[in-house]
């Protein structure tokens, strides 16, 4: 039995609600609903679909992904590491002349630094994406919801979390109904 000390009120609750889920039959319906939810100013919500829907980012009011910054700084770190490493090893710590070349030159250090740029950039991208998405996680409330299973088949869902400051048990449901959802239910935590 799940306990939720901070939400215990006069009426006894066995489970806390995670959010409200609204089902849509077509990508267009889900997109219009998303636009309404976006315009209503919600923050903690998401749209789930079996396949990527073009234009959904704009409909949800999502900006650019921040992952690019992780890639950029990861790449910069890789380039710097490669250059410094080779300078330290060949030109400083154990000076050695190879093929009549200078002790250090960014030219011969470039292939290795370039590889490290790519390696660090890809690691930063992958783990940056994990971090931003709060991954890995072992469980998500939606996974226990029976209706939600159709999200990988042929239905489209808009889910608004109860934790959203704009959330209201009656108004939010009305909003979703007015956007044409035929099936709305609460999702348990």
């Amino acid at each position: 039995m799940a306990t939720a000390p901070q939400t215990q009120t006069s009426t006894p609750v066995l489970t806390r609600t995670y959010g409200i889920i609204a089902e849509f039959d077509t990508p267009a319906d889900a997109m219009h609903a998303a636009e309404k939810v976006r315009d209503a100013g919600f923050r903690k919500w998401d749209v789930h679909s079996p396949f990527p829907v073009h234009g959904m980012d704009a409909a949800m009011g999502l900006g650019n992904s921040k992952v690019g910054w992780f890639s950029f700084f990861g790449g910069m770190a890789g380039l710097t590491t490669g250059m410094l490493m080779i300078w330290f090893m060949n030109g400083f710590d154990y000076k050695i002349i190879v093929g009549g070349k200078p002790l250090f030159s960014p030219l011969y250090a470039f292939p290795v630094s370039y590889e490290l740029t790519i390696l660090f950039a890809s690691f930063a991208t992958l783990f940056g994406m994990f971090g931003l998405n709060r991954l890995p996680r072992l469980h998500h409330p939606l996974l226990r919801n029976k209706t939600f299973r159709q999200a990988t088949h042929d239905k489209f869902y808009v889910v608004i979390e109860t934790a959203d400051p704009k959330y209201s048990a009656t108004e939010t449901r009305k909003l979703l109904e007015s956007s044409g959802s035929k099936h709305i239910e609460m999702v348990e935590e």
């Binding site: 093929g99 009549g100 070349k101 030219l107 011969y108 470039f110 292939p111």
Partner: peptide, 12 residues
Amino acid sequence: HFSQYFLIWNAA
């Protein structure tokens, strides 16, 4: 362009 320069520079 880097590859052209790099290979020529390296081979000398």
